[in-house]
Design a protein around this nucleic acid. Sequence first.
DNA 1: CTGTTAGCGCGTTCAC
DNA 2: GTGAACGCGCTAACAG
Lengths: 341, 341
Amino acid sequence: MQQHLTTIIDIARQLGISKSTVSRALTGHPNVNTKTRQRVLELAEQLDYQRNQLAISLLTNQTRTIGIMVPEFISFFFPKVIIGAQEVLAEAGYNVVICHSNESYETEVANAKALLASRVDGLIVSHTKETRNFDHFRVFQRRGIPVVFFNRVCEDMNVSKVTVNDYDGAFQAVEHLIQTGKRRIAHLAGPDSLPNSRNRLNGYRDALRKYGIDEEPELIISYDLTLEKANIYVNHLLNLPQPPDALFTINDPTAIEALQVIKNRGLRIPDDIAIVGFSNDPISALVEPGLTTVAQPISEIGQQSAHLLMEQLADKEQMKPARTVVLETQLIVRGSTVQGK
Amino acid sequence: MQQHLTTIIDIARQLGISKSTVSRALTGHPNVNTKTRQRVLELAEQLDYQRNQLAISLLTNQTRTIGIMVPEFISFFFPKVIIGAQEVLAEAGYNVVICHSNESYETEVANAKALLASRVDGLIVSHTKETRNFDHFRVFQRRGIPVVFFNRVCEDMNVSKVTVNDYDGAFQAVEHLIQTGKRRIAHLAGPDSLPNSRNRLNGYRDALRKYGIDEEPELIISYDLTLEKANIYVNHLLNLPQPPDALFTINDPTAIEALQVIKNRGLRIPDDIAIVGFSNDPISALVEPGLTTVAQPISEIGQQSAHLLMEQLADKEQMKPARTVVLETQLIVRGSTVQGK
DNA sequence: CTGTTAGCGCGTTCAC
DNA sequence: GTGAACGCGCTAACAG
């Protein structure tokens, strides 16, 4: 039941003037008779006139819309990043289109195409765990549309990026476990394809090395970030002849899944086995015992991503050199590593 | 650093044919020589041609984009609804633009304007707790753009809606509390302005009445859904001369906040005080004791919303009559009401 | 201060 | 099977 929407031509006709004048009046161009402008504005209001952004975008070749694509937004992390980015972007007059790839490479490619077709002015993205080929993002670059990666970043692309110091966060986490007397520290790591996963693994390794603890291959398990697998691997670790006395996981949801498994087995946390997660999701403060975790400045990741994007957007002429911002993490100690905390 | 994007004219020129033919070849029009089509398709691929959706939308007066606006998407509920809706919409070839109003009426109005300007074909929305005036949504109706409300619905607008049976869910929750021997059952209710909040309150009341329990005004507190306030009111309730022996809250985050407060005070759950929430957020299974709660079919709310919207979208000519879908809830019993569950 | 003209990229008549 | 012309709604350049 589409009906006719009033255009500047309607207004022009009714007022017996040209549409150019109407356009000027509406956009606040200085060279318009005050009285004429007044009449235009009134009639526009009365006719419920609304600018057609589509036409303007077609004309100016910019939509003032930014695409944000994340692998999922059920967990706390990504929504919070999006909100941080949105704050900054809205301030600057940009609209935001949010997509989630559902951790599927195919969906990611399809979304990228859709965003390209709708002519977003820029893209902020954290890719799926499956993504190996980044051509669907390179298309944006080739078109002169700035791209910013965060959290999961493509190392081979020369674009701006926002990450946290994953290495250091992991190092702190493991050092903390060692300092509380743990020696057989397991690590549920993320997929090797993700740089942040690799960095955390390196932090884990170096912390062990610093304290002269030999790395036990059987205690390091890379997995695909699904909770079902986490469950399986935690049980596997606990069933080892020499089970670990501590567990450092790639993220909080995994840690909390582990926490459930361990509690159900009747083991004591942290005495029998201590746990450290990564992210400081609010839920980590709610479980029992509270989860020790490496806090990331989540909102700030979004804000910085937006800033870096707008930096690129600022001067279209001479693409600014890409920048990488690395934010610091902070260890939050709770009951899963220190009794009574 | 915008550069020239290849258009159908570029392709036409290079092939020495007219842009009409290129257009036809690209859109799969039957009346095109197979060979010509082949050449067009090849060159398009080679030139990295991408249709300009903007131009098409301007021409056809439809964007195949649906706006979804929610008050927030940090908690589990709204993201999950969005994903449900998106599944159905994507299947039908629609893109989705997600907005969140951050529980602010002003932001909601601004977002509505932006969605209108970007010419979405339809709108799925759950409004803020502040919203009393719905004119910014009525504009869509007036323009012939279908609107579907879910969860928080405007009772005065004649549009399709998706809700759950809030009354019944609340009734079951309170009946369950009574059947476990509770008598002084408090209710942390949502704002009066929200119909679902009122319906849950009514369910609470009628359950009490059915069992001949007098309603105690001091045990019913409406509040603004912020966790700080929840904290204050829970403490207030516990400080009453005769504190409640059970608490039914408007949603799960509130119930979990209450659970923390109660545990910190050293009270036993459920013996001293039992708790029931509403929604069955995953977190309710993770806290200790597990939270008894009223489960909503969250994904289905999104899916149904999308279906109702597409029903309206289907025949533009004669607006179909609006429909309201009410989905059923289910009580999930956990340790916060039954010891050892 | 205002009107005329052109064109953004595309699909769609209507001719041939 | 193909091409020329038109128009979606708007802004900008140019000419008064």
